[in-house]
């Protein structure tokens, strides 16, 4: 069993830059990314932390 695909942010990342890098072909990627990562929604001031897990796909269908 493997975890959902995830990445750690790179220096200077926010969800928009991370979405552009990881999901270049997906429309509205930043918003999609947010919907898959609600745990990051309360980060308006601190932004992404270097240790954050950021999922780059939705939960698997079961």
């Amino acid at each position: 069993m493997t975890a959902r695909q995830f990445v750690f942010p790179q220096a200077g990342d926010d969800l928009a830059t991370l979405a552009a890098r990881e999901l270049p072909d997906l429309a509205d990627a930043a918003q999609q990314l947010l919907s898959w990562n609600l745990h990051l929604a309360a980060r308006r001031s601190t932004g992404l932390l270097p240790s954050d897990v950021v999922f780059t796909e939705p939960p698997p269908a079961r």
Binding site: L38, A41, A42, R43, R44
Partner: peptide, 14 residues
Amino acid sequence: PWSTVLPALELLGD
């Protein structure tokens, strides 16, 4: 929708 909880989370973030 999932976004129901989003405004509150964003508000709380700061």
